[in-house]
Amino acid sequence: MALLSVRNLHARVGDKDILKGIDLEVGAGEVHAIMGPNGSGKSTLASVLAGRDAYEVTKGEVLLDGKSLLELAPEARAAEGVFLAFQYPVEIPGVGNLHFLRTALNAQRRVKGLEELDAMDFLQMAKEKSKLVQLDAAFMNRSVNEGFSGGEKKRNEIFQMAVLEPRLAILDETDSGLDIDALRTVAGGVNGLRSPQRAMVVITHYQRLLDYIVPDKVHVMASGRIIRSGGRELALELEEKGYGWLGLQDGKGAATKGGEARR
């Protein structure tokens, strides 16, 4: 059985339907990429999986290792092992990065009936994990994401993922706003976290990220549905031919968005 099963998932905001029947099966150890033009519902899918209040699920189900997630609060889903790397990581002024992360980890451990980590043990573990994305110590004591560059924010997301060790990691446009060096670092971090027990869903607009994080499967989303699935070659073909190839309209067009990513 797949680790993540999404079946006929429908969701909306207000009276606007955004997800119109998503089916997705991701096995443990697999990395799936979800691509699609702007407005296709990619980020909504990520938010709905993580349990954001703003979206109302109208139909379908989401199972993690056979357990239904949809009734659970976001924090309960996190404790079940769902992790979302945000497209726009949020700043929390005055709250130290490490303090935040330790609070999160210990909250999850409490739910699992594990003992909380004390400050020393946590620090040691965090230091070890921070090497994965090359974050230095000074950075860890700053307020959560406050004054971080785009690249630092994304590296911080991957660092958090390394510490929280989720079963399901959803990466929402982790490549957006990164220059090529930062992209390599972040992708290196993600690759370091691939494991036979873990499933990953990588949401991206561009093929470029998939040069570094090589997916087992690629899905293309449009208008709230997955309209095509295939192997890695699907992404390459999409890159070559553009979303227009699948008869899709991209508000800004794939080429312009590429320009934004290089900025």
């Binding site: 993580a50 349990g51 954001r52 209040d53 703003a54 609060a73 976001p74 924090e75 889903r77 996190a78 404790a79 769902v82 992790f83 979302l84 945000f86 726009y88 990581p89 949020v90 700043e91 929390i92 002024p93 005055g94 709250v95 935040f100 992360l101 609070t103 999160a104 980890l105 909250a107 999850q108 739910v111 307020s143 958090q160 929280l164």
Partner: peptide
Amino acid sequence: GEDQLFYCRQRGISQEDAVSMIVNGFCRQ
């Protein structure tokens, strides 16, 4: 913001604890 709260909750922190953490951060100075 909803954004701040959701970010904390997504990491496993309960809503009450998240509010308290955000407010304490605000007052740290």
